[in-house]
Design a binder for these strands. Structure first.
Lengths: 137, 137
DNA sequence: TATGTTGTAACTAATATGGTTACAAGTTGT
DNA sequence: ACAACTTGTAACCATATTAGTTACAACATA
């Protein structure tokens, strides 16, 4: 299962996108909406910052979006907080002296990549704006 | 990340589909191809059996496919070994007194379900036969 | 009856995850 | 200058998941 960092990241970005008073947007305030520890928020915010989705300044309260919500895809968010990780794990060291074992890894790699691409294509279709629309419809 | 049980399950099914001598298909022999412990094989085989993909008899060596490889989709295999589990985790207990916190779970549930459906649709397209074709092309 | 198998329970080590404490470094207002 | 507050990170902890392992009951077969 994909961990909840994606979920929390979308929550954070939704708050940033919809809160006018940037001064209010402290990690502690965000944490009280997400219901977690402020450090968890700062940790994930740090990843969103490295992915160039948000901006912030050490010492000064608040975070700002770097792009329009319609230009932030869920894949952007997914990749920001997910290690550059394959969706499916493949068992290692299958027996190369077995006809199946010899080719199973490359075969599964092909298959799983196409599945992962299908998922990522869907994540690309949906933007933060779509989430905001659903949140406030 | 989706654990390696899906990967191992496909390996097991490929061996069953392509090994004529059923007597050879012991959990120990399969384990030597997968490169793991026989109990791991029996554990996953047990799940495949419950999903009605393979058959076996306690005490007698071997496993048999219940369906044709072309009629076993990768989604069948995925669901057999994966707990009936959502692809994306959603953080719990967001603050209901916050406009975002109040609706984030139902919104993310919608969004993530559509993404999961895209992945499952792709898994449905590919069958064990397709894997066999790639293994022995 | 001896040998070998499947099926499972139970335990273990390794790893990932989210929560937490602590603190350095920065900003701001007085 | 300094007090109060913030972000950014390192470090640690408890928990859960995972795969590997040992052990053994139940069954089949020569």
């Amino acid at each position: 299962m994909v961990n909840s960092r994606v979920s929390v990241a979308i929550h954070i970005l939704s708050l940033i996108a919809t809160t006018n008073d940037s001064n209010q947007l402290t990690s502690e305030w965000i944490a009280s909406s997400v219901n977690t520890n402020p450090v968890v928020i700062r940790r994930i915010s740090s990843q969103l910052k490295k992915a160039n989705l948000i901006a912030s300044n050490a010492g000064v309260a608040g975070y700002q979006l770097v792009k329009e919500p319609k230009d932030i895809t869920l894949l952007d968010i997914y990749k920001a907080v997910q290690a550059p990780e394959e969706l499916f794990a493949i068992h290692d060291n299958p027996n190369p002296e077995c006809a199946v074992g010899k080719k199973i890894q490359s075969t599964l790699d092909n298959v799983f990549q196409s599945v992962q691409r299908a998922m990522e294509d869907k994540l690309t279709e949906e933007t933060l704006q779509d989430v905001l629309d659903q949140l406030f419809h």
